[in-house]
Each structure stands twice: as C-alpha cells, then as structure tokens.
Design a protein around this nucleic acid. Sequence first.
DNA 1: AAAAATTATGTTATAATATAACATTATATT
DNA 2: AATATAATGTTATATTATAACATAATTTTT
Lengths: 140, 140
Amino acid sequence: MDKKSKSLSKNQKIILDFIQKNKKPVKAYSILSNVQKKGINAPPQVYRALDRLIEIGKIHRVESQNSFVACKISNCDTPHETVFSICNSCEIVSEINDPKLFKHLKAFKDNDGTKFDGYNLEFFGTCKSCINKQIENIQY
Amino acid sequence: MDKKSKSLSKNQKIILDFIQKNKKPVKAYSILSNVQKKGINAPPQVYRALDRLIEIGKIHRVESQNSFVACKISNCDTPHETVFSICNSCEIVSEINDPKLFKHLKAFKDNDGTKFDGYNLEFFGTCKSCINKQIENIQY
DNA sequence: AAAAATTATGTTATAATATAACATTATATT
DNA sequence: AATATAATGTTATATTATAACATAATTTTT
C-alpha cells in the first residue's frame, strides 16, 4: 500500500477538509484559527499535517504566497510537479492541468544534463474577473 | 531614463555587492549581519533595498528558499520571468538561460485565454557535485 | 535657483511564518 | 504481545517580513 492510499489521521483530515472548503489558498495561521474549535491548538500540529498532505499530494504549497491549496488534479501522482496561475490582484490561484506543458517541463534538462525530479511553476497575471472590475471602475 | 539605468543608492549598492559576491543565494538576515559594519542596522533597510533590486532585475527571490540571488543574465530585461534549478542537497541555485524554454513559457495561455505578465519556475534535483559526493560515500 | 515631489534613509516596535525539542499516545508491523 | 512507526500535544523560540513614523537626499518642475 503506498502513501497515497493510506488513510489520513484525525488532524490531517480536519486540515485537509478545511483547505478543500476554500476556493482560495489559505495560510497556516488562518488554518490554525479556523480549526481550533476542533481541538488543534498549536502551530506544529498544523505544519505537521501540512507537510504530510503535501508529501502525499493532497495539497500544494503556493511558494510566492506562503499559502496552501488543495490539489485539483484527480488521482494526482506527481505532487512535486506543479503549475499554478496566480492573480496579482485578488490572489486567487488556479492549478493548471496542461499535459503538453507538463511533458515539456518533465523532459527539461539543464546544460550539465542534470535531470530534475520536480518543479514548481507559478504564472502571474490578472484574472478575467479582476480585469472586468478594473474596467467597471474607470471614471470618465 | 528607465529604472534599470538609474544609479543605485548607497544601501542598494552595498547589498547588491554582497549578494553578487556569493555563489549561493543569501537570506535577508544573513545579508543584514554581513553589512552591519557598513552602517546598515535594521531589517527594513535590507528589505527595501531587496525590493528595489528585484524591481530593477538586479537580483531575484528564490521563492522556495526565501533567499536572494544575483541575476546572472546580462542586460536582463525580464525580471519577472525567471527559471532556476535548485539542488535539494546543497541548495545551490543556478539561473537557467534557455531561450527556447523562455519562449514557450512566455507564450503560455490558460484555458480562459488569460495572458500572463510573469512567471517563476523552479526545478528541483541533485546537482552533479552532490551526486558525486553521494557515490564517494557509499560504504561497501 | 527655489519649490515641490519623489525616493531613500534611519529607527523602534511588532506581525507573520515556521521549527526545535520533548513527553505521550495511537496505529501498524513483525 | 512486542516492537516499530507515525501522529499527537505542548511550550518555547527561531526566522522572515512589515507597519509606522521622522528625517534626509535626490530629482523634477516651475
């Protein structure tokens, strides 16, 4: 039985559940304050669960935001090969599922011929919704 | 005159100079302790200079490490389009200069047709030197 | 050159993010 | 049942980053 199919512990379930309920990525201390009523009291309990959930691919860390988001790719088996688009304005994050791009990145070798065992790619821009809001707010 | 050609301020010079002297990325508080003899006393002075140096493309932030590294691409005019390879073992970072990959990433559009104005890509693996060390250390 | 605007500096305090270390309990494996 | 592994609970502390304010230097405009 591999790590993915092992059942989650109590704290891991509570924290995964909270992350999955949120459309936007959540911060560790926001998780903490939201699960305190479930008996999780201190940062290490949160960070441990986060580490484990990342390891098994249930969530990802959004590096540029220090935040955590549920994996949107069903049966994801590549937790360390991630691509996100991030809106500079509302900070919403979408996981990008583009097999062609994945293939291209997976095949990448550097000058030395070093092959990599993972990557994280974050695209930055302004999402449609925020562009529309900007247009609405132009004053004539 | 654009931002790039503006001359740097005193603190910006001191901090850029220190970052450029280091092969590996450096952390903000390591910068601070190393430039205190030059009269830089407090974190905000470091972070302000870092922000500015990033903005003008002289340095980049390595997101997965909370560290800062000098830009290795001469006359870089795309400070928000960065690709790095990072050794999981020694944490050395190399900036990747691969026009074909850049072109591919620059051209990327998501499902909604959103075009992005920047990206950061970090590849993870084990560098040649660390692989060699591992081989040397195998005990028979 | 004087006035105004912008950019950078210096400083103190504090916020936000993350881990070390240790004792204990629960769960899986042999 | 014994052992090993993984998870928990807890306190304290380390690390990373920013807010807020006063001042000084530099650039731009008049």
